[in-house]
Design a protein around this nucleic acid. Structure first.
Length: 775
DNA sequence: TTTGCCAGAACTTGACGAGG
DNA sequence: CCTCGTCAAGTTCTGGCAAA
């Protein structure tokens, strides 16, 4: 070491050589680089290369961003394609740029008299662009195209191996390649294409073959590979155009071709990238540690810490990636110039922005409408529940003999409260009576049967602790009880063993709701605009658990309605339909069934609300045309002038919203953007006046709406208000809000529960009105 | 199975094209 | 017409943490 080193004073942990000194960052003027060295120098001469932690890189990459922005980046096409053409096979050679469309329909943007013209469709152009981007990536040197799951060769994701991870930093790269992968999606809004970039962490163990040989300390890789039956490898091949392609199945190829005459493998060693599962990586690390080759890294632990990227980091990663993509992408698809802007799009750039909506009030008394609050717990504490039943809620608590003490204690706490939970009566204005009953393990079955036969006379809800025998599952017991008309709540021993106030709160609310009472409703004076009735539907599919040779795929359609009587909102009706290949309902004919089911819901709602007209149907997926037509047909039979709003609500897309003015650049609850006349991105789960903690980056909802008939007093702002309100109707927890509105969350759960019952052959048509028995 | 919210992984379906 | 592979998109499961 020369004298020209300058210590920066930063600490980089204990020296792994002498275990006495600390590693510090120093600057060498000789090679103008930073490096790490032990501060006991010259006693200990340990040095390490200094790799700048990526967070600083990312900060530098974070270009100036506007107040409110998204993870969308403008993709400009100039001139904007006006026409699309089909490229026939015999003309392929004349259009080399179109070669990458080979696996799909051959479509090119270039105009040429020899080409067959097809109508312009945005979806088609999006498809072409998507292909183009992937194609470009695969050509770019230094960019490895990896797969979504690292065991197959899909060209779905692109990984920049040289990019360090913001949290792990570079040091990790010495032993594993921590790859920053991302998902991207193309969007089209108002004449403009956007690319959304979502970074996701992928850990891949990529080692060159020479490293493997070193690792196993054996030169005979071939033999080694032969013994690794499950080893899954990628390798690169170079095609005639000099393009590097990633291919799977190196093992098969090697075994097929064998060693070549010169003793070399048929594939260059450096082109092989073996991929191990994490468990295996961990073993390798352990071995290296034993050999003293590296300090121990608890990979799983490190990964756990990485699972939640805050908005700021997430966006910074995205920007780094977009810069890379832009460098690769900017160019031409024939005559159309493609340019990706590196600046994230501001929310103002969209056709319309949804400003933060105020938090709707909830009503906590069915008689006096002055008893309102925006917070659930506050409202319950101050005013009690919406319904205040005159008779006590009666519970039967079944528990094992071993947990008698804890169960009794739990019951007392539920009744009398602890910390911030003040007891059942204080909050719901109804007493809670709990009878504890001990069961012997071997008698549980008999016990259960006896309760079902007796119809649990005198009890509103049964709480049960599952016996140790694993054949009794929650699903099984719940099904048996509900088939006998008994509403139940399962509880685990750790839950009632020393519960905290939150547990008690949620549990008490659960009992109150399951006993059949409404804890709160929306505030009637803040009537939701343009809606008379909400209906939520959801499908669930699940493989039958039967031992049968070919288990059937079970599908269930559940339907909930939430309707208004004089502006007050409550869940009031549910129904579920099951599909069976042979039986009454065939999934293939779901288009018809969904119509029938929703018509029933409308008829039920009409009893309390004769002048139904505007009906919103919420769904977690995209509606098919068939479904919409079927529903429209069925409902207009009952209400000829009905206006239907088909609202699909998705939370599994790649678009995120940010706001640089907030902590971590998160988007608050209540904000959103209008993407088009009928598409809204809206945040329901960020920080708000009633939510003080947020983890990771808030997931936002994508709300698409179609109306039938196509007439329009449709305002997406109204839909945003609906979401804001409906996310507060979750009667499962006193947590003030949920991401998904109750209209979607409840049917989802109902459909799943019923499917669970069906998968163990415990399904009957359950008719228990006005009880949310499945939550 | 107190709950929900972020995550990731593994799985499935449905649409579609290629090829027999 | 059928089968199979590919790809996009959806579902289900699990973990860790915090909730007023």
């Amino acid at each position: 070491m020369s004298e020209s080193e300058v210590s920066s004073g930063e600490d980089f942990g204990v020296c792994d050589k002498c275990r006495k000194g600390r590693m510090v960052k120093k600057y060498s003027s000789k090679n103008s680089q930073h490096f790490l060295s032990c501060n006991t120098y010259p006693v200990c001469k340990n040095t390490k290369p200094y790799r700048s932690n990526s967070s600083t890189n990312l900060a530098a990459a974070a270009i100036t961003i506007k107040d409110e922005f998204t993870n969308l980046f403008k993709l400009n096409l100039a001139p904007f394609p006006r026409k699309l053409f089909i490229l026939s096979a015999d003309l392929r050679a004349d259009f080399p740029e179109a070669a990458f469309f080979e696996q799909t329909k051959l479509v090119t943007i270039k105009a040429d008299p020899r080409l067959v013209e097809i109508p312009l469709e945005i979806e088609k152009i999006k498809f072409i662009l998507y292909r183009y981007i992937r194609h470009k990536f695969s050509q770019y040197q230094g960019v490895a195209v990896l797969t979504r799951k690292f065991t197959e060769e899909n060209f779905n994701e692109v990984v920049f191996t040289e990019l360090p991870h913001p949290t792990l930093g570079n040091s990790y790269l010495e032993y594993f390649h921590i790859c920053q992968a991302f998902k991207f999606a193309l969007h089209y809004s108002d004449g403009q294409f956007y690319l959304s970039v979502e970074p996701t962490l992928r850990v891949v163990n990529q080692m060159s073959v020479s490293q493997i040989i070193q690792l196993y300390n054996k030169p005979d890789l071939l033999e080694k590979l032969k013994s690794q039956n499950t080893l899954s490898c990628f390798y690169y091949i170079t095609d005639s155009k000099g393009v590097k392609w990633r291919r799977k199945g190196v093992l098969a190829d090697i075994l097929k071709q064998g060693e070549q005459e010169d003793g070399l493998l048929p594939i260059l060693q450096n082109d092989i990238i073996p991929i191990f599962p994490i468990e295996r990586m961990q073993n390798i690390v352990n071995k290296l540690v034993e050999k003293g080759k590296l300090t121990y890294i608890d990979l799983n632990n490190r990964l756990k810490g990485l699972t939640q990227l805050k908005s700021q980091e997430r966006l910074a990663s995205a920007i780094v990636l977009v810069n890379k993509i832009a460098a690769i992408l900017n160019g031409k698809i024939d005559t159309t110039r493609v340019v990706l802007e590196k600046q994230p799009v501001s929310q103002n750039d969209f056709y319309k922005k949804v400003t933060i909506l105020s938090e709707p009030n909830l009503r906590f008394d069915s008689i006096q409408d002055s008893k309102k609050s925006i917070k659930v717990k506050e409202g319950l504490v101050l005013y009690g529940a919406y319904e205040k039943p005159p008779k006590p809620v009666r519970i039967l608590f079944l528990h094992s003999a071993a947990t008698t003490k804890q169960a009794r204690q739990f019951s007392l706490l539920l009744q009398n409260g602890v910390d911030g939970y003040y007891g059942f009566e204080k909050h719901f204005h109804t007493t809670l009576e709990i009878d504890c009953q001990i069961y012997e393990e071997k008698d549980f079955e008999i016990f259960l049967t006896r309760i079902v036969i007796g119809r649990a006379e005198g009890y509103d809800v049964i709480i049960y602790q599952l016996p140790a025998d694993p054949s009794f599952t929650k699903t099984k017991v719940q099904a048996q009880l509900i088939n006998g008309g008994i509403v139940s709540q399962c509880v685990r021993e750790p839950t009632f063993n020393g519960p905290n106030q939150f547990t008690l709160w949620n549990f008490a609310l659960d009992l109150y709701v399951k006993a059949g009472y409404t804890p709160w409703t929306l505030y009637p004076k803040e009537k939701l605009p343009n809606v008379d009735l909400f209906i939520g539907i959801s499908y669930s599919s699940k493989k039958e658990k039967a031992i049968a040779v070919s288990p059937k795929l079970l599908r269930t359609l559940a339907c909930i309605n939430v309707f208004s009587a004089d502006g007050e909102w409550q869940q009031a009706y549910y129904n579920a339909d099951t599909f069976d290949e042979e039986a009454q309902y065939d999934f293939e004919k779901r288009g018809q069934n969904v119509g029938k089911l929703i018509r029933d819901a409308v008829l039920a709602a009409q009893l309390g609300q004769p002048n139904l007209k505007k009906i919103h149907i919420h769904y977690n997926k995209i509606f098919s045309k068939e479904e919409m037509n079927s529903v429209y047909k069925a409902i207009t039979k009952v209400i000829p002038d009905a206006i239907l709003y088909f609202v699909s609500i998705a939370d599994n897309h790649t678009v995120r919203l940010f706001n640089s003015n907030n902590v971590d650049a998160h988007q608050q609850r209540g904000g959103g953007i209008l993407f088009s006349d009928n598409t809204l991105y809206y945040c329901t789960s960020g920080y708000s006046s009633i939510k003080t903690t947020v983890k990771g980056t808030p997931v936002i909802l994508r709300i698409k709406c179609h109306t039938m008939p196509a007439q329009h007093d449709l305002s997406m702002n109204d839909l945003a208000m609906h979401m804001q309100a409906l996310t507060k109707l979750n009667y499962k927890a006193t947590f003030p809000l949920t991401t998904l509105p109750a209209t979607v969350a409840f049917p989802k759960e109902l459909a799943r529960t019923i499917n669970d019952f069906r998968s163990i052959n415990q399904f009957k048509n359950i008719i228990i009105d006005k009880r949310l028995w499945w939550i």
